[in-house]
């Protein structure tokens, strides 16, 4: 049932073309008035208000407010343990918030399982990837959302279709797999990450959540992932992109939420902040001295950032800075 829904969605997605030939989004007006670009109604695809979460007596998240819109990228930045993963686990249905409200399309929700999130069109790439090491790549790709053929008691997996889609989706990412029958545990860390990302891109019908997707990736694959984020945005998906790296976040993000020790320390529209300010904010005032070194170290990624910024400008017209 749900797998079929996903499927029809998928074909629609492909028909629209992955490079944003579908509904084009006017970034200009989008940044001025906060309406949903596809439905032109003043609701957000997802909206969090004062959301808090504690694990026993550990307070992981308090008073977080943010919004995700269709065709927009919301970046979440913060140090280790800032609560980024906790935040996306609430949105993806893995955990439930204890405080505040979480709305999807203006409707208050408390997702009780990842299945519910997937059925609402929200797909996530978790930091720990959520793959089953002993299972073949193609089975991992479709796990929980398998394609079936036949009816009633003869309903069975459509193995051929699933293998083909897996192979193609990964080829699109620039990952040329030897054999989709290989247990996923045998892949390299980055390859595994690419499978998880390709899976989420495939199944995310409305929203795509990526928790540090570029952490284990080479420069080329990082570029591909950032490009994917832009493509997903142009297809009208709401994207949440979690990263430590402001150089990755800034070129693709429309909104930036900065977390520190479970609290929001800033929530900006792209027009209100520059890359340097973002980096400074992330590092915190006291650590500014260290920042100079850090920026130098990050220099190698500068090329990529520039290249991507150029691409953003290309695909989305001129961006306000």
């Amino acid at each position: 049932m749900t797998a079929n829904d996903m499927n029809s969605n998928e074909t629609a997605k492909h028909a629209a073309g992955p490079t944003g030939t579908g509904p084009t989004i006017d970034q200009e007006t989008l940044l001025q008035n906060e309406t949903d670009p596809l439905t032109h109604t003043p609701v957000h695809l997802m909206e969090l208000e004062g959301v808090g979460k504690h694990y026993g007596n550990i307070i992981a998240l308090t008073e977080v407010t943010m919004a995700v819109d269709m065709g927009r990228v919301t970046c979440v930045l913060g140090d280790n343990g800032a609560g980024k993963s906790t935040l996306i686990k609430i949105i993806a249905g893995l955990h439930q918030h204890d405080e505040g409200t979480f709305k999807i399309m203006g409707q208050e929700r408390k997702l009780t399982s990842p299945r519910e999130a997937l059925d609402s069109g929200i797909a996530a790439v978790y930091q720990d990837l959520a793959v089953v090491g002993l299972m073949p790549i193609w089975r991992n790709f479709f796990l929980g959302s398998e394609i079936t053929t036949g009816r009633g008691p003869f309903r069975r997996l459509d193995v051929k279709a699933m293998k083909e889609i897996t192979k193609n989706e990964l080829a699109d990412m620039g990952i040329d797999l030897r054999d989709v029958e290989q247990p996923i545990g045998q892949l390299s860390g980055g390859e595994r990450q690419c499978v998880a990302i390709a899976r989420a891109v495939h199944f995310g019908a409305k929203a795509l959540i990526l928790d540090e997707p570029t952490a284990a990736l080479g420069v080329k694959q990082s570029g591909v992932v950032l490009r994917y984020i832009l493509q997903a945005r142009d297809r009208g998906l709401g994207v949440i992109f979690i990263t430590h790296n402001p150089h990755h976040a800034f070129p693709v993000g429309d909104r930036f939420l900065l977390l520190k020790r479970g609290k929001s320390i800033g929530y900006y529209d792209k027009k209100d902040i520059t890359l340097d300010e973002l980096t400074a904010q992330m590092a915190g005032g006291a650590e500014l001295a260290e920042l100079a070194h850090e920026l130098e170290a990050l220099g190698s990624h500068g090329d990529l950032a520039q290249e991507l910024e150029a691409e953003v400008a290309e695909t989305a017209g001129q961006l306000p800075h």
Binding site: P114, A130, V131, R139, L143, G144, L157
Partner: peptide, 29 residues
């Protein structure tokens, strides 16, 4: 055998045994 290798339930059985948390995260009951 058919159930294990060729149905959704079979896929889920391997998944819950292989990595319960990963299975839950991708929507396996």
């Amino acid at each position: 055998s058919w159930l294990l290798l060729r149905t959704r339930v079979g896929n889920w059985i391997f998944a819950v045994g292989g990595d319960e948390n990963a299975a839950r995260a991708v929507g396996v009951p």
